[in-house]
Computed example of a mutant assay.
Amino acid sequence: MRIDHMALYTFQLEAMRAFYIKYFGATSNEKYLNPRKGFASYFLSFGQEGTPGGGARLEIMQKEQVPAHGLGAGAEYIGLTHLALAVGTRPEVDALTERLRADGYPVVGEPRTTGDGYYESVVLDPDGNRLELVAE
């Protein structure tokens, strides 16, 4: 058994799609539209089966009248708290963290080795979702 995909609602569908393609090498399907429900989505794929990323997918969705969660950007809350993305080596974690910082994305956790042995940093995507950038 494996997790097929995770999904996030957003108010800025195209910006989120561009972010994950630009910084994480995601590939995207064609936009799905359901005008009757006011719904649009993309599936973003990270890697292929048997390769880094393992075919993981993220569905980003937009729908009329889906409320914001009401918490501040990057806040921790009950429920899904972060998405961890393996981005390569420690120097690659450092480089991507600095690239995102230079492009104006908040870094809320500087690169470090955690108590359980992960090397990671934490940045926020355009919607304020917490992304852990981890070394493989």
Rank of each mutant, 00 (worst) to 15 (best):
R2L: 10
R2P: 11
R2N: 14
R2I: 12
I3G: 13
M6P: 09
A7R: 10
Y9Q: 03
T10N: 11
Q12S: 15
L13G: 11
E14T: 08
E14N: 11
F19E: 07
F19H: 05
F19T: 10
F19I: 09
Y20Q: 09
Y20C: 10
Y20T: 05
Y20K: 04
I21W: 02
I21N: 05
K22N: 08
K22Y: 04
F24Q: 14
F24M: 12
A26F: 08
S28N: 07
E30H: 06
K31C: 13
K31F: 04
Y32L: 14
N34S: 11
N34Q: 10
P35L: 10
R36Q: 15
K37L: 06
K37T: 07
A40H: 01
S41H: 10
F43Q: 07
F43C: 11
L44Y: 00
S45V: 11
S45T: 12
F46Y: 04
G47M: 02
G50M: 09
T51Q: 15
T51A: 14
A56H: 05
R57L: 10
R57V: 09
I60G: 01
M61C: 12
M61D: 06
E64C: 10
Q65I: 13
Q65R: 10
Q65V: 06
V66H: 11
V66G: 10
V66S: 11
V66Q: 12
P67K: 01
P67Q: 00
P67F: 03
A68V: 13
A68Q: 13
A68K: 15
H69R: 09
H69N: 15
H69S: 14
G70M: 01
G72N: 09
G74T: 11
G74K: 03
E76V: 15
E76I: 15
Y77S: 15
Y77D: 12
I78L: 15
G79Q: 13
T81E: 15
H82W: 14
L83E: 02
L85Q: 01
A86G: 08
V87D: 06
G88D: 06
G88L: 09
T89S: 13
R90K: 15
R90F: 04
P91K: 13
E92S: 11
V93F: 03
V93K: 03
D94N: 03
D94E: 02
A95D: 04
A95F: 01
T97V: 05
T97S: 03
E98N: 07
R101N: 04
R101M: 01
G104W: 01
P106G: 02
V107K: 00
V108I: 06
E110T: 07
E110F: 01
T113V: 12
T114E: 02
G117I: 12
Y119R: 05
Y119D: 08
E120V: 13
S121M: 10
S121K: 03
V122P: 00
V123G: 00
L124V: 04
D125A: 06
G128I: 04
N129D: 01
E132Q: 11
E132N: 04
V134I: 13
A135W: 00
E136S: 06
